[in-house]
Structures are given as structure tokens and as C-alpha cells.
Design a protein around this nucleic acid. Sequence first.
DNA 1: CTGTTAGCGCGTTCAC
DNA 2: GTGAACGCGCTAACAG
Lengths: 327, 327
Amino acid sequence: MNRISIKDVAKEAGVSISTVSRVINNSAYVKEELRIRVEKAIKKLNYNPSTIAQSLRRGKTKTIGFVIPDITNPFFPNIVKGVEDYLKKEGYTLLLSNSDQDLDMETKIINTFISKHIDGIIFTGTGLYNPALEKLIEKGIKIVFLDRILEGVNASYVICDNQIGIYELLSYLYNRGNRSYYFVNGGKNTFSAKIRYEAFVKFMKEKNIKNYNHLYKEFSYEAGYSFGKKIKKLPDVIIGGNDLIAYGIIDSLQERGIKIPENVSVTGFDDILFSKHYKPSLTTVRQPIYEMGYKAAELILKIIDGKQKQIKGIVLKPQLIIRNSTK
Amino acid sequence: MNRISIKDVAKEAGVSISTVSRVINNSAYVKEELRIRVEKAIKKLNYNPSTIAQSLRRGKTKTIGFVIPDITNPFFPNIVKGVEDYLKKEGYTLLLSNSDQDLDMETKIINTFISKHIDGIIFTGTGLYNPALEKLIEKGIKIVFLDRILEGVNASYVICDNQIGIYELLSYLYNRGNRSYYFVNGGKNTFSAKIRYEAFVKFMKEKNIKNYNHLYKEFSYEAGYSFGKKIKKLPDVIIGGNDLIAYGIIDSLQERGIKIPENVSVTGFDDILFSKHYKPSLTTVRQPIYEMGYKAAELILKIIDGKQKQIKGIVLKPQLIIRNSTK
DNA sequence: CTGTTAGCGCGTTCAC
DNA sequence: GTGAACGCGCTAACAG
């Protein structure tokens, strides 16, 4: 249980602690001979510098907090991976925490992060405005919003262009002759659902389509499933707010003997891991999930390093993926 | 950018920093009046105690490191959730890191963890022996192995009883009249693959089955897919080393026009999220994934608190899940 | 080029 | 019951 400190190394090497510090950080020239002695001592004692002491001293922790709603939602692992990969590359540590879609938990996490002196935070919140965010800004902790923007909070963000995604999806379907649409969307107070809804309505107006419906439910398999169980009159296309919803719709319709895409087309949004293996494979809009995480990490570090002064929004392009759930 | 420290609070409240400290930690009685003044000051200044200063002082960080191979593998999100949920409940923080199945990365992570003074580590490694683990033990950092045991390392662990899982699966299949088996397994140097292989062979011997094959590949969809593309003579059952392998096998066989389970039964292991929605839905062995994480977190904290002195192995029971990919 | 020293924010004696 | 002072491990400024 004996933590080895810089003192022990100094003693072992017969130098002062500052010399050890210099060797560790390569912060000043140290005579070859001493450096070697220090390095040997470090090896011998199995010394690891204490990050927490360094952080206390430097006033920076090289740690980025990342708040996500739920890691078990298949959308997030890849985004986390993107964040982590970039941060690791830059010598930063990721502090990840699930908010479980709960505002209080979100607040708690933010406070923990503040206590832990994180240098910056990447925020994929529950979708509702959280006053704790002000505190963050007040303390000078940098923020990047990821996958959603929060009204009233003026901060940098990385999102995917949902409007274009919906537009391309609908254009494709429209050009193939589909004329009636049902949009089964995610939760009403989420950024993604709202923005997709807007893009949907805009397209309907643009093409002067009257035969359409829209419903806010939830971004889950079950939401899609329960919808598919009940729907009476089938439109040409059912748009799932995300892939999970589409899966649920497909399964419930198939159980009712309805054929996809022969009787009705079904689409998703996200292109998560299994969408290409679904039966039928899912026509959907691919978000560059990993890249979104990667870019967000890149952006937050830029802001922290002062290389990015103004607020910046990065908007990534989605990609229409045509598979076998549509005709 | 002005961090508020205990000093500021003390000044604001007109007391000494020790009094503030006592209020924060409830470590000694403080006169009602002062306590209230301190609490007011904390509120007013929006003060959060510095965890890193506390850690430095106390010599404990209330942080647990968790090494996993890859968060984008659908097996892991739930296990992470289990770990995180328990740790949060106990006021601990989780430090998660992906090793990307790379031994060097693993070592790097361990060193980072040591530098960060984690109090304990939950370890789901690449499967190969890592000398850096000795260092951990040497430093008195507690370890719990999760989902795998490492030969030669004497430490506590939480695993699922793979043998029973395989046994029950095979018994079921055998009792239904299946007599020839092909086991498409994960990577040769992983704990899970080895132990499942052993259980498989044991059963074959026990029932005196001669008509069986075994192959070490990889725990991935692609591994299963490439196998299914090539296999000539179909056995009664193809056992996938995990669900992903089974998915790949199913898809490739179906593409060849082979019907499942009519022409051949296919099984998996794990019961990840999509297995119940697969087509056909997958017969598999469910591991209590979330619970494994939860128990591991519970165990590591027990060890840290000194409530668990001896090395302890927790073995969770799997559950046979019969669905439509077998006959 | 190297050593001495102050202090980052906090908890914990030890006096009072 | 409360405050002053020390030190956790480290870096940065300063002195030599």
C-alpha cells in the first residue's frame, strides 16, 4: 500500500525533487547523467506520477466529462468511442456518466464534474433545459453540445444535419411514387424529434402532400411495436423516428402478416449496428455517429486550448442508406 | 474562471476553513448558527469542494477504474451500466476505458489508472496475461476480474457459469434428437472461448457423440458470416460462440437458401439486446450481463472497505433461452 | 544546470 | 466548539 512519490525517486536517484520533475515533464534540460539516474530510479521503484497532485498544482486535470442519456441505447457506444479515441490520442481522460434521462441525475453529474475539476464537458442531455449548465459556464468550464442544441444556451455544438437527412429520405420515397406518410417520432421534448418533425412537415408542405400523419412517442423499440400493433389504415410509408422505432414497427406489422415493403415501406434514422442485418434490412439515414463523437472531442480541446475563441457549430452530413424495407 | 475554494467560503461566512470543512463533511459538531452561515455562503458562492484536493489529502479517490475491450461490442454496455449504477449509488466514480483488444493499450490504461490513484479496478481484459497487473497488486490496488479469469493471477472475480450454460443448451438440443454439432467459437486465447470449448467437448464425450466439430474463430458477426458462406455439409446444429457469431451464420446460410431451423439449428451465447428480435429469434444462453457488472462493483467496494478479506469468486447462473432458431 | 521553497485546496491534529 | 498550522505530491519561480 506504499505509494511511491517524487520524493522517494529523488532520494533513490540522489537528486532533488525538482530534477525528477524536470525529467518527468521534460520541462528543462537535465544533464544526461542525472537524467539516466532518475530514469533508473523511476523504473526501479515503479513510480507513477500522481495525476491528482499534478492537477491540483496546475489547475488543470486533462479530463473531459461526457454526459449521455444511456449507454445501453445502441446509438451511444459509437459516439462514446469517437470521443474516447480522440481524447486518448491527446492525452486526455474521459469521464463518462449516464443521466438515465433524468434531470436531477444530470444536475448531480454536473456537480460531480465540477468537483472533479474537469476542463471541459461534452453534453448530450436529456433534452430539457438544465440550470446547472449556467453554473458550468460561470465557472469557466467549456461546453460542447453533442447531437442536440439546447435553446437559450449559447454554446458550441456538433450535430448532424437532420433536416437534410429527412429531406433526402422523403425525396427518395416521393420520387419512387410514395404519396402517403405516417411519421412515428421520438419523445416530444427531445431536440432530435422536434427537428425531424419540422423537416417532415416542411417537405409535406413543399410537395403539397395532404395525406400525412405525425405522432410523438418515444425513441424505443417498444414505441414502434405498440404503434404497429394498432395502426389500421396503412400509408405508403411509415417513417420511424429512429431505427429502434422502425424495428418495432416492422416486427409488429410482420406478426400481423403485413409484408414489408410490399404492403408498406418502413424507414428509420441513425443506421445503428443491426440495421443492415435486419429483415428486411432497413432503409434509413445514417448519422456519422463515431465521427460526431470524434469531432466533439476535437472541438472541446480546441476551445480549451484557446484555439477556438468564438462559438462554433459543426454540422455533419448524414447519408441516405437505401435497403430493402422500402419500395 | 474563478474557482471558489474553501477559503472563499470561510471568508464569506466569517469563520475558519476548518469550520467549513467540518460542515461539509459533517465530521464534528458545529454550532447551529455557524453551520447556517457556512451553508448560506456555500449556496451563495456556488461552491463545490475540490475532489482532487480531498483525494490528495485523504489518499483515496473514491474512483474505480474499469477496463473493457470495446464498448461498441453489444455485450458491454449493459455490464458497464451495472457497474456504474452500483458505484454511483455508493458515491463512487467510474473511470471507463476501452483497451481495443490491445495489450499495450491495456498496460497504458493501467498506468493511467495508477497515476489517477484509483482505489480499485474491475478488469475485463483482452484475455492475455498482462504483467502490468502485478504492479497494481504491488501498489495495493484492489482488483476484481469480470467475465474472465486470468491464469496465474490470484484475484477475486465475477463470472457466469459458462459450463452450465453450454451443458443446458446441449442437453436441450440432444433431448430434442439432435446428434451432430458444429461449434464455431470465438478467439482461441480468450477465456470465454476456451471454457465453452471444454464444456462442449465434455458433453460430447459424456454422450459419446462422435459427430462433432469445433473451430476457433472470433467473437464477431463477420466470423460467423464467413463460416456460413463456406460450410458444406450441414450438421444438425451449429453452435455460435456468441450471439454475434450466430447472427452471421444465420444471415449467410439464409442467403444460400438454407432454412433455419428446418435445415439446421443455430444457437448463440449471451442473449444480447437483438437476439429476441432476430429472424428467426435466437435460441441462446442468457448471461446476466447487467447483474455481472453490478456484482463486480459491489465486490470491489467490499474489498476496498475491508469487508471482504479473502479472495472471492462469484459465479452467476446463466439461463437457457429457447426461441425459434432451433428445432 | 540544479536545488530550495511556496502554495494549489483540503482534512486533520493540536492548542485554546 | 473553533481556529492555526502542517502536509498530501507536485510544479514553477527563484536563487545559486
